[in-house]
């Protein structure tokens, strides 16, 4: 059985097909594959969708951000090398197509569970584990964003996912969790 509603928006047919095969390998439902951002009437019908969008469409996505967020839609930027030179604030996360397929899958699966409202197991992705470790060491969202070359918005999204998966709300609780799981040096 397929889970979630996803839409791929990318000009490159090769990337479209690559993303499609990755999503289907995990039984993630695909509603549409588009070459460009559709008009507002179509966008506003997407509720709890997962959008995988070419980072080149950042400006257009920004214009529709309010309606997308209101409808619980998660927007993942699909980029290539070099797109990280500037933080992209309209995306919940940005995935580099050069990344390992398994890592891409792991990250996308986490978002699919979120938009589907399914409680995931408490397994954190490597990226979330890294961010948890930095939170536990006392780094601010801004410092974490700069350290990882991502936007503060993306850091906040990761932190929400961490809290959702672990069921731990406070920074002190996350720090204790990180210490007990050897994610931080407790002797410092």
């Amino acid at each position: 059985m397929q889970t979630g509603n996803s839409v791929i928006i990318h000009k490159s047919a090769i990337i479209q097909q690559g993303l499609k095969s990755i999503l289907l390998s995990r039984n993630i439902g695909i509603c549409d594959i588009l070459n460009e951002i559709p008009d507002c009437a179509i966008l506003s019908n997407w509720k709890n969708f997962l959008l995988l969008v070419d980072t080149l469409y950042a400006n257009e996505i920004s214009k529709h951000l309010r309606i997308l967020q209101k409808n619980g839609t998660t927007v993942i930027g699909i980029g290539t090398n070099g797109f990280l030179s500037e933080p992209v604030f309209c995306f919940d996360d940005v995935i580099d197509i050069n990344e390992n397929t398994e890592l891409i899958l792991q990250r996308i699966s986490g978002y699919v569970l979120r938009v589907s409202g399914i409680k995931p197991n408490n397994q954190l992705s490597p990226r979330e584990t890294e961010i948890l470790s930095l939170v536990a060491q006392g780094f601010s969202n801004k410092q974490i964003a700069e350290h990882n070359f991502i936007s503060i918005h993306t850091v906040i999204t990761h932190r929400k996912n961490i809290t959702y998966k672990l069921g731990i709300k406070s920074i002190s609780g996350l720090t204790l969790y990180a210490a007990l799981n050897n994610l931080v040096d407790t002797h410092r």
Binding site: I168, S172, G173, L176
Partner: peptide, 17 residues
């Protein structure tokens, strides 16, 4: 809010460990 959340987190983490 902080005081309540931390205590609840503490209990959950203790149970898991």
């Amino acid at each position: 809010t902080n005081v309540e959340n931390e205590l609840s987190d503490f209990k959950i983490i203790l149970i898991r460990h």
